[in-house]
Write a protein that binds this DNA or RNA. Structure first.
Lengths: 222, 222
DNA sequence: TATTGAACGTACTAGTTAGTACATATGGGA
DNA sequence: TCCCATATGTACTAACTAGTACGTTCAATA
């Protein structure tokens, strides 16, 4: 896939390949950072889990922090494609919101490393993300679709107008992220694994129901 | 307050006092662990920020992990008092739910170290909490009030019956915890500080509105 | 007031960990 | 086919960090 030569690549070559080495380091580092946190992750452990050596981390990424930054940016870049998967212009606003919520639900479920990295980055006050060049591109995709749906809903008179797109985004994110980020303390205390497939359909429906119920309720209503 | 002698304690004594030393260590350690995470926290730093020495950490808590465990248990024990503050038996179910949501909102806001410790504990898969003797006492207080409110609401025919107490608890927690736990990445990306007092009343109302709107909506309805 | 154990401080150590110096191999062009 | 920049591996180090050995002081009580 990434090999630049025309070799048939018979089951894992051992030739030098910068792209492959970089990629392997990122993949392994993502797993380790997500699993252990930034301070808890060990450069030696990351290296040991790859087919290359620690030296390459410093060669390609400059150091532990550079590697972590690359991991973080890669994770954010990958989930940025979420909204692109969504075409809701044909749906009525309530159904469109529900779809967006469900897509977010599904998407977070399939990107659990990402959710953990976000938690870890927040422990560090988002200091790395804040300095990252990818930061400016993250807000718009998440908000544009939502803003359009809300506008249509308000124009149709079915949505309340005291809630903005960012509020709705926050509600959806909080539900989906909590489910994974707080999974372990929640399970310890209440003995319910929020990722158990038995709960999945109900929680997924709950999220959609809740957001729609709120948006279509009259303000201040009980 | 904690001095066992009858001394008037004129502005910070330097006598030995086991309880005061323990307490100071816990207070400082809470701050440092919450700030840096478990692996990121330094035993030497914790000691340096107290008026005592590192030796005392090992004397009273056995080590870094023992200290962290004591910090975690203390934090959970302190917030356990939340539900006790609530007397909703006179209110109608919708208003009772709203009060519970708002109380949780307020409570998390005044216990930000706790929220950070929960995030950190989840990074570690809740391995410490799971082993803690305080664990069995944590579920019931959070659920009992909620269960009673839901039962009354269903009996009155105003609440739907396809959502259980734990679901509602999860929704409320996710909103309140996200607001703080994900504050930094959210602010970095969307340039909105979720703890800014300007947003506080709207978010607080939003949470209550949303939970009530959902509980009072008919199942499956949009 | 002499004793004794709890409370405390200092100085040290063993192990870990991020990072580097140095040597080497590879493979695509000149 | 020779060159040499890119890519890679090994062995090392300096600094950090959790934990401890050992000695001291205070205060309750016998």
């Amino acid at each position: 896939m990434t090999s630049s030569t025309a070799a048939a690549d018979p089951g894992g070559d051992r030739t030098r390949d910068a792209e492959r080495t970089r990629e392997e380091l990122l993949t392994v580092a993502t797993r380790v950072f997500a699993e252990e946190g930034y301070a808890g992750a060990r450069v030696d452990e990351i290296a040991a889990r790859t087919s290359t050596t620690k030296r390459m981390i410093y060669y390609y990424f400059g150091g532990k922090e550079g590697l972590y930054l690359a991991v973080l940016e890669r994770a954010y870049t990958r989930v940025r494609s979420l909204e692109a998967q969504l075409d809701v212009d044909g749906l009525d606003p309530a159904e469109a919101i529900r779809r967006l919520a469900e897509l977010t639900f599904d998407h977070h479920e399939t990107h659990q490393d990402f959710v953990r990295l976000v938690s870890i980055e927040n422990i560090h006050h988002a200091e790395h993300l804040r300095r990252s060049p990818i930061l400016p591109g993250l807000a718009a995709p998440a908000l544009d679709v939502l803003t359009r749906i809300l506008e249509r809903g308000r124009a149709d008179g079915v949505f309340r107008d005291d809630v903005d797109a960012l509020d709705v985004h926050m509600v959806i994110s909080s539900f989906c992220i909590f489910r994974e980020a707080n999974r372990h303390t929640f399970a310890a205390i209440f003995d319910r694994d929020l990722l158990d497939p038995a709960h999945r359909p109900r929680l997924r429906r709950l999220l959609g129901d809740m957001v729609v119920a709120h948006l279509t309720a009259r303000p201040g209503g009980e």
